[in-house]
Amino acid sequence: MLVEVFVTPKRGVLDPQGRAIEQSLKSLGFRQARGVRVGKYILLEIEAGSAAEARRTAQAMCERLLANTVIEDYRLRVEGE
């Protein structure tokens, strides 16, 4: 089952990359840009009998390895959900 993992810095955690990009966007004239955050996109397949099971497994993967929950949030998109 195809699972997409989006990892982003938690609100309140300094994100120097996001800030630099936001400044660049503004200097290009995109003054509408707000709250730019830079994260990671991880795509993986999980062997599972159901979407719910795949989600549970992906959650466990995020908690243990894919995200550092001290500073990062994660969001999942599971095929078939």
Partner: peptide, 9 residues
């Protein structure tokens, strides 16, 4: 805590 990208990048 954690260690992340330097402020200056």
């Amino acid at each position: 805590g954690a260690l992340t990208r330097n402020r200056s990048l």
